[in-house]
């Protein structure tokens, strides 16, 4: 099975998997996020189109209001 790592969790990788697909698999429903793939920022307007390579390390951080 090909995999990627999302916030330290190993999940199955599928060809053509997008950032949005990962968020769905991980059940991350939060709107305000920072996403990095292999250390590179992915802006929110590219969540639907940016595909994730096999073996990628993905970080997803939830942003909280308050300051």
């Amino acid at each position: 099975m090909d995999t990627i790592t999302v916030n330290g969790n190993i999940i199955e990788w599928k060809d053509g998997m997008t950032v949005r697909g990962i968020l769905t698999v991980m059940k991350y429903s939060f709107r305000m996020l920072i996403v990095k793939i292999n250390g590179e920022i992915v802006k929110k307007e590219y969540y639907e189109t940016r595909t994730v390579p096999k073996g990628a390390e993905v970080n997803v951080i939830h942003l909280m209001s308050g300051g």
């Binding site: 996020l33 942003l63 909280m64």
Partner: peptide, 10 residues
């Protein structure tokens, strides 16, 4: 606001 944090960090 989290919305502002998002665009700035991105």
């Amino acid at each position: 606001k989290a919305e502002s944090k998002q665009w700035l960090i991105e």
